[in-house]
Design a protein around this nucleic acid. Structure first.
Length: 502
RNA sequence: GGGCCGUUAGCUCAGCCUGGCAGAGCAGGGGCCUUUUAAGCCCAGGGCCGCAGGUUCGAAUCCUGCACGGCCCA
């Protein structure tokens, strides 16, 4: 282990502790109260006029102010922060000097004593005994705060974005607001599950390693099973497995888990991300829309206390009903282009170039509409919006519109300028489905991300009869971005993907 | 993939334009201090200036390449 000068100093302190017969990493802890419980116990004692009880609290040393024969320190555990008040006359010379000399910010300690208030009124533990629980060798970034007119001013922080992600443990340890993001994330997942469970959905788990990938337009990660001599793909979607379960007579299923897409990394994309998909028999995409807006509003209310949220300076009202607009209308309103006037990729690309919109060379008609036109619309969709009715040739798993074979019953929904997810009235005609798969194979080059390999087993399942159903996907990370007001997906993923540094 | 910006002490940053001894605050070390809370005061430390090359008498500073990250675009 290579050590910096500061780390070497701390190792010396550790050795001094050992020489004095003190184990710097003891096995047992004698905590009587969490810090929150200790603070509550003090208030309860004061309210009832009783003597505060003796406590033993534990936590990480956050600050230390040595003032001659007394020392103030703060410790923090998962529940809160409390001040320690050490006096030479209470703890004795040996222990007092050891605390001053061999204890550092960042160490985990255990403090025994009685609860009290200092002259300034701060809840404190008047310490009789303090013990090392775990010596920290590497110094954490020190954060100093001050209250000015009720606002907390922070003087330094651990703010280097790259190092915060690479050493998330240090980020979490020193930045409480980062810890809060992942608490909101956990509450969001629970609220989603609660809502789905309450509506008779069954949570299931389907394969992450798949012999054939499908269900989305994305390139996969490829891996290999050594014993079986078989290439496998990390799933890019759950869709095809979940719909097999409808054939198997589960009416409503959902899965929350990770998808893996071998594509670029951006403020909205991580190669590994959390997806929610559900499928409900006997629903169409209108039912899914009605359910979606209720679910998101309910989750926001449960997680944040209100369905009206703030995201990147916008006030967003998640209460139903959400705006519904066709893709054609939305694209025409923002770009001035009605794509039905341009029925070929060439004519549409020309029209888009004329409007100054970026055009990817060789892009298909559907791709131009999806990435080009909708891409221009997306940032304008701040309030929750369902964008309806997509071209059939970019939607191989969705049922066509009743009076329009060129479009399907599909929607994507947008909040805060972010695409949150995708849903459709699911195609359940095995012959139509086979035809769509064959067309995908013809229209797109093998290297294209839109290619779907033929999943014969999925067709076989559908031949047994699949109930009409509505399906739904949600980018959970993006929902968490929304609920925590974070501009990048990396802030809501504990360990986001980064290149190796060396 | 392209453009712009960044990388200097454990942390947060100055210094770079206009080349000339490597700086500050916090943290750490030594000392003073019995109600502090960004505690205060005194003293002394701490650097592969991202990496590699070039220009120059001399490079943290100018030039080129590379790595990693950020923002924007694709």
């Amino acid at each position: 282990m290579e050590l910096t000068d500061l780390e070497r100093q701390r190792v010396q302190k550790l050795e001094r502790l050992r020489e004095a017969g003190i184990e710097p990493y003891p096995r047992r802890v004698e905590r009587t109260h969490t810090i929150a419980a200790a603070l509550a116990a003090l208030e309860a004692a004061e309210a009832s006029g009783q003597e505060p009880p003796p406590v033993a609290v534990t936590g990480r040393l956050r600050s230390m102010r040595v003032m001659g024969k007394i020392t103030f320190a703060h410790i923090e555990d998962g529940s809160g922060t409390i001040q320690l008040f050490l006096r030479l006359q209470n703890v004795g010379r040996e222990q007092y000097d050891r605390f001053k000399r061999d204890f550092d910010l960042g160490d985990f300690v255990e403090a025994h004593g009685t609860l009290m208030r200092t002259r300034t009124g701060e809840s404190s533990v008047l310490v009789t005994q303090v013990r090392m629980l775990a010596k920290a060798i590497s110094p954490l970034p020190v954060i100093k705060e001050k209250e000015v007119n009720g606002k907390v001013v922070r003087y330094t922080a651990f703010s280097n974005v790259e190092e915060r992600y690479r050493q998330r443990y240090a980020d979490l340890a020193s930045n409480p607001e980062v810890r809060e993001i992942f608490r909101v994330r956990a509450r969001t997942l629970k609220a989603l599950r609660r809502f789905l469970d309450a509506h008779d959905f069954l949570e299931v788990e389907t394969p992450i390693l798949q012999p054939v990938y499908g269900g989305a337009a994305a390139r996969p990660f490829i891996t290999h099973h050594n014993q079986l001599h078989q290439d496998l793909y990390l799933r890019i979607a759950f869709e095809l497995y979940l719909k097999r379960l409808l054939v198997g007579m589960y009416d409503r299923v959902y899965e929350i888990g990770h998808d893996f897409r071998n594509e670029g990394v951006s403020h909205k994309h991580n190669p590994e991300f959390t997806q929610l998909e559900f499928y409900a028999a006997y629903w169409d995409y209108n039912d899914v829309m009605n359910f979606c807006e209720r679910m998101i509003a309910t989750v926001a209310e449960e997680v944040l206390g209100s369905p009206i949220i703030r995201y990147q300076g916008h006030e967003i009202d998640l209460r139903p009903p959400w705006r519904r607009v066709t893709l054609r209308e939305a694209a025409r309103a923002v770009t001035g282009i009605d794509y039905r006037d341009y029925p070929t990729a060439e004519s549409l690309a020309a029209a888009m170039r004329e409007k100054g919109l970026p055009v990817k060379p060789g892009a298909t008609w559907g791709y131009l509409i999806d990435k080009g036109l909708l891409g221009a619309v997306e940032p304008t969709l701040i309030q929750p919006t369902f964008v309806l009715d997509y071209p059939r040739d970019i939607s191989p798993l969705a049922k066509t519109k009743p009076n329009d074979p060129t479009h399907v019953e599909r929607f994507e929904y947008f909040i805060g300028g972010l695409e949150m997810g995708n849903a459709f009235t699911e195609l359940n005609d095995p012959f139509d489905q086979e035809q769509r798969f064959l067309e995908m194979g013809r229209l797109y080059a093998p290297e294209d991300e839109e290619t779907h390999p033929m999943d014969e087993d999925y067709l076989r399942a559908m031949k047994y009869g699949m109930p009409p159903n509505g399906g739904f996907g949600l980018g959970v990370d993006r929902l968490v971005m929304l609920l925590t007001d974070q501009p990048t997906i990396r802030e809501v993923i504990l360990f986001p993907h980064l290149r190796p540094k060396d």
